[in-house]
Design a protein around this nucleic acid. Structure first.
Lengths: 132, 132
DNA sequence: GTAGCCACTTTCCTATAGGTACCTACTATA
DNA sequence: TATAGTAGGTACCTATAGGAAAGTGGCTAC
């Protein structure tokens, strides 16, 4: 039997939900590699497997397949298979996936405003041996 | 030498940033256990280590320490050490951390509106053997 | 004197995500 | 004949995050 990638359980399986109502969403939307995939699909539109592979770079086909299956199962992307030769498969964002756009924009906005503050905080923390 | 938990590298170290400008934020804010910690700190205010440990439950002290250090280094929370006996340490959200509040609210809103759609999509995917 | 408290720290161990590399079937092209 | 292109599948292996459990130090309360 092949390992069932469709029932793959995200990293947050130990239920931190008890304390945090947004943990489920985080597991769905922000697990590893999902944001680059969604972002690429969003900015470049419908794409084939190899296009995604090339654009995201450093991702291996195995992992890309796993994540695409997961995103498809969660209804965030749509997979269309064309039984041609050579086979052609296209991926695109679903309507549910598109509903994440303002959220991503919000995130990008926060990043633009505050990422350097995080960098500064890290630098301060690392170059201040006295307080610890 | 003790393992240096302060320079801990989050899971997304293989740089998916190439394709996705929000990946850095995701690594900082949405790595495992950070949202429950930030959420608990936000809703219950300043707290001691044991209070966090009890509220979040299932988190081990080791991991809690690691994540608190990481969040402190990133400037999202503030740690205050009182050299008493027994020792007392208090954690609270920093201003930078508080600036995440609208983002979290946005996330909670999306969850409330769309989480059941994800559930539905999963159910559909799992109970439709024909298309695959 | 010993048990408990707090805030960790340390050691040991395991689960698993993810990487490498090779494989499929089919066709067109050189 | 051999290679390339397509969308993955599969086996093997490793790195490491994270869990369990015990320890630490200094004081207090019983």
């Amino acid at each position: 039997m092949a390992p069932d990638t469709t029932t793959w359980t995200p990293a947050g399986a130990a239920e931190p939900e008890l304390a945090c109502p947004i943990s489920p969403v985080v597991d769905i939307v922000f697990s590893r590699w999902t944001t680059p995939i969604l972002w690429t699909l969003h900015t470049h539109g419908r794409q084939r497997f190899v296009e995604l592979e090339r654009r995201i770079a450093k991702i291996t086909p195995k992992v890309l397949t796993q994540r695409l299956r997961q995103l498809e199962r969660d209804g965030l992307i749509v997979r269309t298979y064309h039984p041609e030769v050579p086979p052609r498969v296209e991926y695109e964002i679903s309507e549910l996936g598109r509903s994440l756009a303002p959220l991503f924009a919000h995130l990008a906005e926060w990043a633009a405003e505050n990422l350097d503050r995080v960098e500064q905080a890290r630098h301060d923390y690392d170059t201040e041996p006295a307080a610890r």
